[in-house]
Write a protein that binds this DNA or RNA. Structure first.
Length: 637
RNA sequence: GCGGCGGUAGUUAAGUUGGUUAUAACGCCGGCCUGUCACGCCGGAGGCCGCGGGUUCAAGUCCCGUCCGCCGCGCCA
């Protein structure tokens, strides 16, 4: 029977005790945060997940009480002399007031513990970096010792928030009549969409499972099974390159509902978001959204004004699409634009098809950008594949100066552009033109970049602003330039809108669908759709995609069968749990809200995964490695 | 796959046109210290300059290659 833990039970967490607890005998366990040795007496700040409490080891001024053994107090002081950062210790002592020495910076600053006896549960090597919030240490090192990094109060707070989101979510859906149901991770490989992680089968030589990139098909099958309302907080796996808001294994709050229209899905999710913000952040979104609903924007408008389908609405700064103007003015005297106009005139490009576009963005005179700063911007856009960054400064008479276009552009064209962009004297126009996808990407990123430079939004974090937006009515199909065919923009089971069914055969690009994305501060935090449950329309969609019946059967046969055996109309959505946590907690990267994250190249810096395996292990799963294994990697087995 | 930035003590950084023994702060170790709270004071130890090649009398510094991390493009909801 150990004295501590068995006999002396923990009475409080560090960070709980207040002035009202003075006089109590307490037992605390925790980690040595800092120690201050004054020779005769030693101060130690003891830390656990709830906070920090100051311990005093002082044999010359021992705590008063019936259970005080001076010999133990002396021993404890000896032990305290040797204690170092991150040692794991326990103490018994008396809560006493700090009198005049109150520390107003600490929640427990009114009190301290006069230590009667102590135990060292475990010594600790000097940590590679201090356990403090104001940390400058590289993320690489933090991830190597993530278990230490996670001790920092900031990190403990993030994962407490994440825990709260999970609990609120479960309560909310339970009360709303949803069942929490599970789906397999090891699933059939289905082509299209994200690249899958593969799991070799031992029992079926040469065959592979895929790790589920989402529970999409299974949750639809749940609807066919009659569960009516499903949710799951579930891991998803996608073998794609990293970004600040992407991770190879991530968590979704996955939802599917039967007999619903988009508004039903919106209501369900808005209810959840409102609850999370209220119960986790203490923010009532009703003040900002009195109707209880988030605003909508059509996909088309979002692309035109902001260049992507996830606009950050904390600021405006819209793009102006000048394609029509350029065509109407035959290029307006600008050689680059004349080229584009000529392509339209010759019928090489069509206005109703994706092709080449011209866009402009206004930097207000108040931003006072120097030539050098604009050159830096040019480097920024070039890193995204842009050829350059054409610009024009608007002079008092409306003419363009400091511009490659200024000399040749016609007066009429300049006036028209100025009017379209709504410029004022001193404003700077920035142009992009060419392939639509590239122009959109560059302009969308440029808009956000400029907003950060101008201080309209912070470099990272929400800055106290939460701007939600539903982006709705996107096209069902996307033109695949490489494959020269139409492909499903989302997946092949999204329901086309009734009004666009007529275009399915004659003009697939015009078919809109019941697809929706939830956007928060420029991040897509969720997306979903109403599904296609009508086999007849389904057949037409496959046809438009160039998928014949045999093809469809081979890939999705099980789902097509299910849809013919009593499938209710259904739809759903998935929220990015990690992104939601990231935005809500104001952290800068997805890795900050994942306890054990992987690096951008998918490695685990803590465990060194993935590693090579032994030949025996490979043989067992019928795999032969062709690529030479990296020489400096360890071998498991 | 591509572009950008970075890698120097445990940590964060400095390091000049290539030139003596590679600096500083914090941390660490030892000593002193009874009211500190990022305690203070005195002393000390600590380096594969990411790795490999090359140029040179001489490389942390220049050149080539390579690995790792981050940001972005492509890819990806």
């Amino acid at each position: 029977m150990a004295r501590f833990i068995d006999e002396l039970r923990r009475t409080h967490r560090c960070g709980e005790l207040r002035g009202t607890d003075v006089g109590k005998e307490v037992v605390l366990f925790g980690w040595v945060d800092t120690y201050r040795d004054h020779g005769g007496c030693v101060f130690i700040d003891l830390r656990d997940r709830e906070g920090v409490t100051q311990l005093v080891f002082d044999p010359n001024n021992p705590p008063e009480g019936s259970n005080v053994d001076l010999e133990l107090v002396k021993q404890a002081h000896e032990m305290a002399n040797s204690m170092r950062g991150e040692w794991v210790v326990g103490i018994r002592g008396i809560v006493r007031s700090r009198g005049k020495n109150v520390n107003p910076k600490m929640p427990t600053g009114e009190i301290e513990i006069g230590v009667i006896e102590a135990v060292v549960f475990n010594k600790a090597e000097t940590p590679p970096f201090p356990v403090r919030d104001d940390l400058a240490t590289k993320e690489e090192v933090r991830l190597q010792y993530r278990y230490i990094d996670l001790r920092r109060p900031k990190m403990q707070h993030i994962f407490k928030v994440r825990h709260r989101i999970n609990q609120v979510t479960r309560n909310y859906f339970d009360q709303a009549g949803f069942f929490e149901l599970e789906t397999p991770f090891m699933v059939k490989y289905t082509p299209g969409g994200a690249r899958n992680f593969l799991v070799p089968s031992r029992l079926q030589p040469g065959s592979f499972y895929a790790l589920a990139e989402s529970p999409q098909l299974y949750k639809q099958l749940f609807m066919v099974s009659g569960f009516d309302r499903y949710f799951q907080i579930v891991k998803c796996f996608r073998d794609e390159d990293g970004r600040v808001d992407r991770h190879p294994e991530f968590t979704q709050i996955d939802v599917e509902m039967s007999f619903v229209n988009p508004a039903d899905v919106f209501n369900a999710m808005e209810g959840l978001i409102f609850r999370i913000w209220r119960e986790v952040l203490g923010i009532d979104l009703k003040e900002k959204y009195p109707s209880g609903h988030f605003p909508h924007m059509k996909f088309d408008e979002s692309m035109r004004k902001y260049g992507n389908d996830k606009p950050d609405m904390r600021f405006d700064m819209p793009h102006t699409d000048l394609t029509e103007l350029v065509i109407d003015h035959d290029g307006g005297g600008v050689p680059f634009f004349q080229e584009i106009a000529a392509k339209f005139a010759a019928g090489k490009l069509r206005r109703d098809l994706p092709g080449e576009i011209v866009k402009a963005l206004v930097v207000p005179a108040s931003a006072e950008m120097s030539r050098a700063e604009v050159d830096k911007l040019e480097g920024f856009v070039k890193s995204m594949g842009a050829k350059g960054l054409a610009r024009a400064k608007v002079a008092e008479d409306g003419s363009w100066t400091q511009s490659p276009f200024g000399k040749t552009a016609t007066k009429e064209f300049i006036a028209a552009v100025n009017a379209a962009c709504g410029v004022k004297t001193g404003d700077l126009l920035l142009f992009q033109f060419g392939k639509e996808a590239l122009v959109q990407t560059v302009m969308a990123n440029l808009r956000v970049h400029l907003a950060k430079k101008q201080g309209l939004i912070p470099e990272s974090g929400h800055g106290g602003k939460f701007e939600f937006l539903w982006v709705v009515d996107p096209p069902l199909f996307e033109w695949d330039d490489d494959g020269h065919k139409w492909v499903a923009a989302h997946h092949a089971f999204t329901r086309p809108q009734e009004g666009s069914l007529e275009f399915l055969e004659k003009d697939p690009g015009k078919v809109l669908c019941y697809r929706y994305d939830l956007v928060l501060n420029g991040f897509e935090i969720g997306g979903g759709s109403i599904r296609l449950h009508d086999p007849e329309v389904q057949a037409r969609v496959f046809k438009a995609l160039g998928i014949d019946e045999d093809d469809a059967r081979a890939k999705f046969g099980f789902l097509l069968d299910a849809l013919k055996r009593g499938a209710p109309p259904h739809g759903g959505i998935a929220l990015g749990m990690d992104r939601l946590t990231m935005l809500l907690s104001g952290t800068e990267s997805l890795r900050d809200v994942i306890p054990w994250p992987k690096s951008q190249k998918g490695t685990d810096l803590l465990t060194d995964a993935p590693t090579t395996v032994t030949n025996e292990q490979l043989t067992e799963v019928h795999i032969r490695v062709v690529a030479p294994p990296p020489s400096d990697k360890g071998t498991s087995g």
